[in-house]
């Protein structure tokens, strides 16, 4: 197992490296940091711009491969470079990673836990009213893109707040810096409500569909019949034998769901004014900030592979058939 994990780690690090390099090349050749300086009034002398860009390793006059080598030699020592206006990427990222991870973690946990429960319940109640209601809701939710959902949530929040005359639901930012202590904590929680809903709802719908289908596949199988033949009631046969087994295929979808979650987080952060990695990606592409884009890509690739690894670990934990003993 140890040797296997090591091999897996090495190949994952390699994949992250290649993916991030790919992203760097794409960003370095597609984005034009020079544009930030060119339109200025009064005009900045080209030599000055070149010097500044050289400082930040952003000069398009330097061959892209040379810039890449400079970037990589920084990355391996833990220095991700500077933004287009010379701020440290490391510092910026330090602030933002926590913000994003908090959202992703909560979205994943709430989404998978609630989704699996709801899906399992729907499977047991197949063709009953509750199953149909859950099914239709899941379909409708899955048809609503995150940016529409998030915008609708702000619209609703504004409506509620206006009607009540005070701010019941917060819809911009992470917290109110004016508050402190316990107040700040509850304020943070309040700020979390809408983003969590906008991020988790899609996940819930997704997991509930998967779990329901997997559970129904399992329900028709021989071992559920065996469990009932030995005297278990339908309910215990379902919970002890069917649910547990159907979690395995659902867990293999974890990595996939995480990918959509990452994209969803970008919109959530942007629309609710959180300063996370996703929002940074959008901002830095718009501001032609090559190094920041590369940094976000690096972070995203690492997240995706960690999720894939976790997914494998969960499957291995749930399924004795795939463990190497």
């Amino acid at each position: 197992m140890g040797a296997y994990l090591l091999k897996r780690l090495v190949s994952n690090v390699l994949l992250v490296a290649i993916a991030a390099s790919m992203a760097y090349f794409l960003a370095a050749t597609s984005l034009n940091p020079r544009a930030k300086y060119e339109g200025k009034q009064p005009p900045v002398a080209e030599a000055v711009v070149d010097a500044t860009l050289d400082d930040y390793n952003l000069n398009d006059k330097t061959p892209v491969f040379e810039r890449y080598v400079t970037w990589v030699s920084g990355v391996v020592t833990g220095d991700l470079g500077e933004t287009w206006d010379g701020k440290s990427i490391n510092e910026e990222m330090g602030r933002r990673v926590g913000v994003s991870l908090r959202l992703l973690l909560i979205g994943t946990l709430v989404g998978s836990a609630v989704g699996v429960t709801v899906g399992g319940y729907a499977a047991v109640k197949q063709y009953r009213l509750s199953d149909r209601v859950i099914g239709v809701s899941a379909f409708v939710i899955m048809a609503i893109p995150v940016f529409v959902l998030a915008t609708m949530l702000t619209l609703v929040a504004v409506g509620i707040n206006d009607t009540l005359g005070f701010t019941l639901l917060e819809y911009t930012g992470e917290y109110n810096p004016a508050l402190s202590g316990w107040d700040q904590f509850t304020n943070r929680l309040n700020h979390l409500i809408l983003p969590t809903i906008s991020l988790a709802l899609g996940q819930i719908a997704f997991y509930s569909r998967i779990q329901r289908n997997m559970m129904l596949d399992v329900l028709g199988q021989d071992f559920v019949r065996t469990a009932r033949a030995k005297g278990l009631s339908r309910r215990s046969a379902l919970f002890k034998h069917a649910l547990r087994t159907s979690l395995i295929p659902a867990a293999t979808y974890f990595a996939f769901a995480f990918g959509t979650l990452l994209t969803g987080a970008t919109f959530t952060e942007k629309i609710f004014g959180w300063h996370g990695m996703g929002a940074w990606l959008v901002d830095s592409i718009q501001s032609n900030d090559v190094n920041a884009v590369a940094a976000v890509s690096l972070f995203t690739a690492a997240c995706v592979l960690v999720a894939g690894f976790l997914s494998d670990l969960i499957v291995a934990a749930l399924d004795p058939r795939v463990r190497v003993s």
């Binding site: 994949l15 992250v16 794409l26 990606l281 976000v296 995203t300 995706v304």
Partner: peptide
């Protein structure tokens, strides 16, 4: 699959 397609296309989009 390592990078979400959203991210890659977004990066290329200025072209």
């Amino acid at each position: 699959l390592v990078l979400p397609s959203f991210l890659i296309i977004a990066i290329v989009s200025p072209r």
